[in-house]
Design a protein around this nucleic acid. Structure first.
Lengths: 207, 207, 207, 207
DNA sequence: TATGAATGAGCCTTCATTCAT
DNA sequence: GATGAATGAAGGCTCATTCAT
């Protein structure tokens, strides 16, 4: 092993603890909520000392924010790749939801994290006015919708309205699903909701 | 003044402080969030001593629950009266949304209270598994939907799905609206979303 | 016991804890120094709970300041009464020193408190620019000196200079005496220093 | 380059870091005070790693002590050379004060260091009973005084008393001067105080 | 009933010190 | 010798809850 390799290893190690802390934070915040989570809980879960957390993050708030960022950036990138592999708007929409259903089914605590911890306080938003991770999701959805409208695959619905409808519905379904201990089938309800969003709730007119 | 009258007055008085505390609690929880609200904040707002709160409520959690119950019962009753004054499903649906838009426009902190504080923690739900104030809203929505389906004014969509879609969308729109400092027009977006829910997002087929 | 008496008792009681905390603080700060003194040390010494300290004082710094104020105001008042009972400048000067010698001999920790804790940091002075308890002592000394000059009992020495000389000497003697565990006789050295200040250090010119 | 030279260079280098740390420590302790100074502050100022400090000093206390020693030894040696260049007691006394006025005017933080940090705690003196850097100053002053008395240039004042008077006055003047942001003229007040110490404060008897 | 002073458990954060490299 | 990432003990302060009046 030469010097260059060693340096790489060092760099890797440098980030190892940080990554461990982020992962522990996401899981613990999601499981117990921000306020009930002690820094020492996270430190223990990450197998580091309490003080180590403060080598990588300014304070508890900062850790929350950075955890969100990390989580959402990662997921959004994954999502974009998958979605952009699809051709039609319908396929993309389906993929958008499928991705989340899969993600949250596999790691329900992420659903809780995104659906609940995210919105703890206006104070939080006041403190970090530029911190709008949900906004990035919404923006992405809105791009997809606008494209679809251009393609003619979508009638001229209100972009903002549809994005709120889609995101809000998904968010609520997931919140219910995760706080109610997964008492209904996520895949099933997704299909049923997609059906409503596609065709509306009015009786389908015969022609 | 006879004994009966006196007793009534006493009872009224008895409830006066309780009511004041509940009202102060709702407003304060909504404004500052559950964790940042101190019992002494609520006591001051209600113009009672800290200790007095504990004459009417077991603890802070209990006060939160009772506040929700009070708030939601009141609002739900109001809502039911208005909704049941309408004949058609469409009118009822419209009324359902209009009522909330009006309510939250007038008292935005109630939106915050319902949208955010409501879902603070799994711990909370674990501790009070029977406490599901949202459930009552959802149940009511589902009743309306089922009726409408029977009337033939609604195609055979999934009741649970539609109720989640409607409630989740409303919830999210309100959260955004209240955390983003009312940056968009609530009435306007409501109409646009109702349009989507009615007719779906697909191009309307000519016939 | 009537209502008025009871109210007095309450008032007394109200201040009882505050007084106990101040006294405990002075003694503990003096014995251990500001930084080594824990709030819990003071609380224990005052026989109250830790939290009680914060009912009467904003924080540890505030407690230090208030303790000084209390201590110095009290002592300065006592001192003024005694000094003003004397007629001539010489008697007043003697009283000024005698008072301190007696005070510090009886309660050496007060000497430490005034001589050392008082000047912990420039930060402290920056934070509380108006907080100059020593200044009040100096001002008082300067008044005495100016009067004496007017009376003709004192030659036209520099007032500021003499006040610094007197205060600084006293301060240093006390510091040495208290940090060196009272290894010399305070009364004795006082007389010898007074002699120098009176007649100067040059050989007394015969005439 | 031979081995001896190399060894010298190494020794020099060895001491380079130690010297850098001492200098950084004196300046930083003086500027921020002992308790607010972090080891990492000193390390950064000395341009070494935190751990390096512990190669040369046992702990933070030890670093403080060694810094004092270094500072005081240096200054005392300088002072002695200058003082011993003077013939008469009066000239020596003047030099003693002039030296300090010059030193502290040029590097006010040294005044702070000596006047304040020096006396942080009884604990400190208890821990290091032999550590009396001021003592060396006092001893030197006392030697000067005793010599002067032998020479007949000084009446038979109490040596300890006069040394305390001189040192204490100087100490206090400097403390006031440095904590009050140099609000008065050091040179001017020095002359006025020297006048008092020489001739006393009583009206000069005519003859 | 009502009060509000008192309590004390609990937690975030700092920083002197260590030690593997 | 030199580094600096990691450690973990320690303490100021908050605030839900109690209880004597």
């Amino acid at each position: 092993m030469n010097a260059r390799f060693q340096s790489d290893k060092v760099k890797q190690k440098k980030h190892h603890k940080r990554t461990a802390i982020i992962e522990a934070a996401i899981e613990t915040f999601a499981k117990k909520g921000f306020h009930k989570t002690k820094i020492s809980d996270i430190a223990r879960a990450a197998d580091v000392a309490d003080g180590t957390v403060y080598l990588y993050f300014d304070n508890k708030d900062d850790l929350l924010i950075k955890s969100f960022d990390e989580l959402i950036s990662g997921k959004l990138n994954e999502l974009k790749k998958l979605v952009e592999g699809e051709e039609t708007f319908l396929a993309r929409l389906t993929m958008f939801f499928d991705y989340h259903v899969k993600l949250f089914t596999e790691k329900p605590y992420i659903a809780r994290f995104m659906a609940i911890e995210l919105r703890q306080s206006t104070e939080f938003y006041k403190k970090f006015p530029d911190y709008q991770p949900i906004k990035r999701y919404l923006n992405y959805l809105q791009e997809l919708i606008d494209e679809a409208k251009k393609e003619g695959n979508l009638r001229d619905v209100d972009t903002l309205g549809l994005s709120y409808l889609m995101f809000g519905t998904m968010d609520f379904v997931l919140t219910e699903w995760s706080t109610r201990e997964q008492s209904f089938d996520l895949l099933d309800i997704k299909d049923k909701i997609v059906d409503i969003v596609r065709y509306g709730m009015y009786p389908i007119r015969e022609h």
